[in-house]
Structures are given as C-alpha cells and as structure tokens.
Design a protein around this nucleic acid. Structure first.
Length: 321
DNA sequence: AGTGGACCTTTGTCTCAGGG
DNA sequence: CCCTGAGACAAAGGTCCACT
C-alpha cells in the first residue's frame, strides 16, 4: 500500500516536471489516488492491523493489566468479572465477562491471526486438528474440548465502550464434523485505536512457560523502555494471588526465562520491593527484534511464507462473501 | 477398512505454601 | 537461594467405537 502510494506520488511529480497536460493521464492518476484512499480507509476500519503468520497481535491494554490473569489452575475461574481495562483510566473501556487467563490470551491472538486477512465480521474457517497442533503442539479429544471451551469463553468476554460493546469472539460454529469457524466483532478494530497494538513472536511465546512468564513477555513488549518498577504493582496487574515471598520467586524464574530468550537484558535484579530491568542493548540472537509490519515497508512475510503446518491452519476460506 | 471423535491412563507442568 | 509437596490440570499416547 505504502509502496503504491509512493509510486503514485513519484508519477505525479514526474508528470508535473514534464508539464504533461494530457487530461486522460491526469484523470487516470486522480482516479487511482482516490481508489487508494478508499482502500486505506477500508484497511483502517475493517481489518485488524497487519501481521505475519508468526506474529501475535493484541491491543496494548490487554498486556499491561490483568485481562488475561496469572492464576493457579486449582483456583476456580470467576464466572463473572467487571473492571476497567486500564486501571489508570477508570472511565475508559471496561471488561465484562468470565475470568480469562494466559491460555485464553493465546487463543484470542491466534484467532486474530486467523482472521487477519479478512474484513472483520466475516467468517473464517479452520481445521480443528491443525489449530490445536499449531497452538499446543498436538491434537486429541481433550484438546478439541479445550479449544471449544476457550473460544466459547472468549465469546462471553466483552469490552464495554461508551455507546457500544465488543465481544472478543462474535460468532463460533463448532459442528461435530468438519471445520469450525469464527467471526470477529466488526468493532474490534476500535480496540487497536489509536495505534496501540503490541506484537509478540509466536515461537517465543510458545517456548515460554505459560503463566507469569508469558504475561511478562506481553508486558515488556508493551513498554517502550523498562524502568525500576514495584513488584507489588506487577503482582496486582497480572492478577496473581501469591504471597510476597512466593511471587518474588515466581518473578525471578520468569525473568530468568525472559532474559534467556533475549526479551530483557540479563542484568536484571530484584532489589528491595522493585524489579530493576531493561530491554537488551543488543538484540540477542534468538530474539530478532521484530519491526512492526505496519511500518513503511510492506509486510513481506505475511502472504509468502509457506510453512506447511501453519499454512494448513491458515488457509481458511471466507465462506460468506 | 479407514477415519474422526471420545475416552482413559500415565506423566509432566504450573501455582502456591512452607521449611531449611 | 534451594527444595518439597499438594492440588489440579495439561500433555501425550493409546484404545475404543460409530460412521462413512
């Protein structure tokens, strides 16, 4: 899109230089400029921000607070919760729905990825076995059940804005046989405004132990720089109910995992009641510091990569054009 | 016969508390 | 800092069965 824009601008400049007054040519260029504008509007209003098969995207507010809780599995999920999405903005959008955890976050981002090339609101189909294999590395009856329950939970999860409410998943069809399908709420793009998306690398997200480590991964990626931060605040943000000592130990383990992946600098420490950390000065080898695919260059990888396993999940057809 | 889906068992993982 | 153990799932693999 950006490239086309540049080409058109260059062409217009060229024609001006040549003092071309051929109306057909000029009209033609104007026509394409107008079309480009329409397409740009559509991209902004009707599609989730562009990302590749190997990236997970989410609104920033989903990572800096307790939307996707870190909780022990033996604590029963709360059936109904309501809280402001951003604790710092009590009058902003509110979350209303069942308690979500880190595993729900992964499925939500996978569905955003699945639907990324379709206009929001359109139904995207997927092969169940391929999806669970993509998410969790295997497929069986339990995984199938787990995926169904997770998507249904996301369906009951809503974000309330003044004037309208968005479901994290709007429509979910799960026939006994054959492909399942989901449709995202057409207003879900509102969550990404103004340009507040955060990208995670799928392979890194999958390598990290699910829980506090994955929550911190999202949190770190949502911060432009890391400053010494109170441990208590992190505990409150991620929703953990562990006591001081236990949480400190969990945090230490999680930070170790993050530094091993090159997400934070290895020189982190827990001093007093604060965590001292910073982003790696040199992007470490395993963690290619991903550039935003929405930046000026077109996201080359997104349609060209042909990884078989990923491809088989993501070749969903739009069923209701 | 082949396949998809459900169900079962064993082993592994994660949170959390408590003790050295 | 390390270890242990409880509790509840999950992961992984196998088996069974109904349906095509």
């Amino acid at each position: 899109m950006r490239a086309k824009e540049r080409q058109l601008a260059a062409l217009q400049g060229e024609l001006r230089k040549l003092k071309v007054t051929d109306y057909d040519t000029l009209n033609g260029i104007q026509h394409y400029s107008a079309q480009l504008e329409v397409l740009q509007e559509a991209l902004k209003d009707d599609f989730v921000p562009k990302h590749t098969q190997f990236q997970l995207i989410s609104p920033r507010s989903f990572f800096v607070d307790r939307l996707f809780h870190v909780r022990s599995r033996d604590v029963e999920r709360a059936a109904h919760l309501e809280f402001p999405l951003d604790a710092g903005a009590p009058d902003g959008p509110r979350y209303v729905g069942p308690e979500l955890r880190q595993s729900d976050g992964l499925v939500f981002m996978a569905l955003l990825n699945l639907c990324r090339d379709y206009r929001v609101g359109k139904t995207a189909c997927f092969d169940v076995a391929s999806m669970t294999t993509w998410l969790w590395g295997s497929y069986n009856g339990q995984q199938r059940q787990r995926l169904k329950q997770t998507i249904r939970r996301l369906q009951r999860a809503t974000i309330e804005f003044p004037g309208f409410t968005v479901q994290l998943v709007q429509r979910f069809e799960h026939p006994q046989r054959g492909e399942w399908s989901v449709a995202l709420d057409k207003d879900i793009v509102q969550l990404f405004r103004p340009k507040t998306q955060v990208w995670l690398e799928l392979p890194v997200r999958k390598r990290l132990p699910e829980g506090l480590s994955t929550w911190l991964y999202g949190y770190v990626r949502s911060q432009s720089r890391l400053i010494p931060w109170p441990i208590d605040d992190l505990r409150a943000r991620c929703g953990s109910e562990a006591n001081d000592k236990t949480f400190r130990e969990m945090l230490g383990k999680a930070l170790r995992a993050l530094s091993m992946e090159g997400i934070i600098d290895i020189g982190w420490s827990l001093k007093g009641n604060k965590v001292h950390w910073r982003k790696p000065s040199q992007p470490a080898a395993p963690q290619r510091e991903s550039r935003s695919p929405a930046s000026d260059e077109p996201a080359q990888g997104s349609f060209l990569l042909t990884d078989e396993s990923v491809g088989s999940v993501l070749n969903s057809e739009r069923r209701h054009p």
